[in-house]
Each structure stands twice: as C-alpha cells, then as structure tokens.
Design a protein around this nucleic acid. Structure first.
Lengths: 116, 116
DNA sequence: TTTTTAGTAAAGCATATGCTTGACTATCAA
DNA sequence: TTGATAGTCAAGCATATGCTTTACTAAAAA
C-alpha cells in the first residue's frame, strides 16, 4: 500500500521545526496572511516564507493569493496522516503486549499496564 | 505551558527520517538488538547506530546493554506526545469550523474572524 | 502619480545531517 | 587462548537547513 496522499516524511520534517509548529498552531485557529504569520516570529519575513514553503511543499498547508495578499490555511489531511502512522505503531505495540500477556499466563506480573 | 516530558521537536525530527521510521516500525513489534535493527538497512552498522542515537536522544527509544548485546525497545510515551499535539491542532481546527458554521447559519457569506 | 505595503527571488554563509571508512573494546565460543 | 561477534568512537565529506542581506514586482493607498 503506497501513500496516496502526501508523504509522511516531509510532513513530519515540516512540523519538527518549532517555528513551523508555531505557524501550524496559529493556522489551526484559522487562515492567516504571510505577514500575519511572520509577524510574531523573531526572524525576517523571508525566513518565515522559507518555512512556509516547507510547510506547503509537504502539503501541511495550502495558500491562495488574492490581490497582493497570500492567505495560508491548514490542510488537516496531513495531520491525519501523522495521526494514522502513530496509531499504527501504538497498535502494533499493544498487540505485542497482549500476546506477551497471554504467553506469560495470567500472572498479573510486570511489563504491562493500562493500554486503553 | 512547557513540555514536561521529552521535547516534541526532537521526537518529530527523529521519526521524520524514513530509516528511523523503519526502525520504529520494527520496534513496535518488539525489542531488537542493534544488529537486528541494522540488519536489513542498506547502510553500514555505524550509520544505523547514528540513527539509533537520534531516536534515543529524543527518547523515542530506550536501550539496555546486556553482555555484548544492546537491546533496543520503543518508548510509547514519545508517540503519545505526537498524538497529543496533533489532536490539539485538529481540535482547534474543528472548533473554528464549528464557530464558522454557527456564524454562517444566520448571516450571509464571509469567512473571517480576526487574524491580527 | 507617487508611495507604501505584501510578497518574491536569489545569493551567501554557518551549522547540522547522513553517510563512509578506519580503528578499537568487550564478550562469548571453540 | 584465539578468534569471531556485537557494539563503539571518531574523523572526514557531501549535501541539506535556517537564516541573512540585497534586490525586485505588483497591488493598494495617499
């Protein structure tokens, strides 16, 4: 099964940067212009735009330019992909713990805890 | 609100790399030795160990050396933090859409609030 | 029309990353 | 004790990243 949508690696790489996470957090509250996004950041507008370009390349974000203003908005699909991958790993992990529990008999011994 | 646990940035950076994701996926199925992890990867053992060091520094993974074998295992806490951050963003996003829905319920068009 | 304002493009630079190769150490096996 | 196995340390190198500064263009405002 291939990635139909955007690639997970670039998405994770995009949101691994603290500046870009601030941008995503702001965009989660609603669309914003490039300068509104760059406004609070302790760096040049150009630097902020380079971050935006990374987010957009990873399709974490989309944007549309109207007049001289480019409005950027979050693409929730990207975040869903992250969620999905993480959930898959957690599932595999928990299944292993279940098997381990069975194997070890019914002893309420070590290693496990509450998993859902 | 600060990060109590491990830092999200390093965790995301760690799992942004495809090689390291393969490692995490393998570890989700159960602990493995360094060489078992490195085994399938198209790179030197040393390179694989450098990846492992990144995962361990981010606390995505823990390891313990017994005899000459180091056994690596997944630390699900790190993945939970990713899950949490993503969920927070999605929540903010959806709340905004809800408000927008209410707003559009009565008044005509237009899609904004205040974005600075 | 002139001047801001919003956004772009591109070059340059310091640092970080991902990998290699070449030692080396500690443990287990024969 | 000798040798193979599992892992480690470190230097070196090419490429990627994050940022800056110096131009520019296009749209709105004055």
């Amino acid at each position: 099964m291939l990635d139909y949508q955007t690639a997970l690696g670039p998405i994770l790489h995009a949101i691994a940067d603290p500046t870009r996470r601030v941008m995503v957090e702001q965009l989660a509250k609603g669309p914003a212009s490039v300068s509104a996004l760059a406004g609070r950041l302790p760096m040049s507008l150009q630097a902020a735009m380079q971050h935006l370009a990374v987010l957009e390349a990873a399709e974490v974000v989309r944007s549309e330019k109207i007049g001289r203003v480019r409005t950027v908005s979050l693409n929730p699909t990207a975040l869903r992909q992250v969620e999905r991958w993480v959930a898959e790993q957690k599932t595999a992990w928990e299944r292993r713990l279940d098997r381990l529990g069975d194997y070890l008999g019914e002893s309420p011994d070590d290693e496990r805890k509450d998993h859902d």
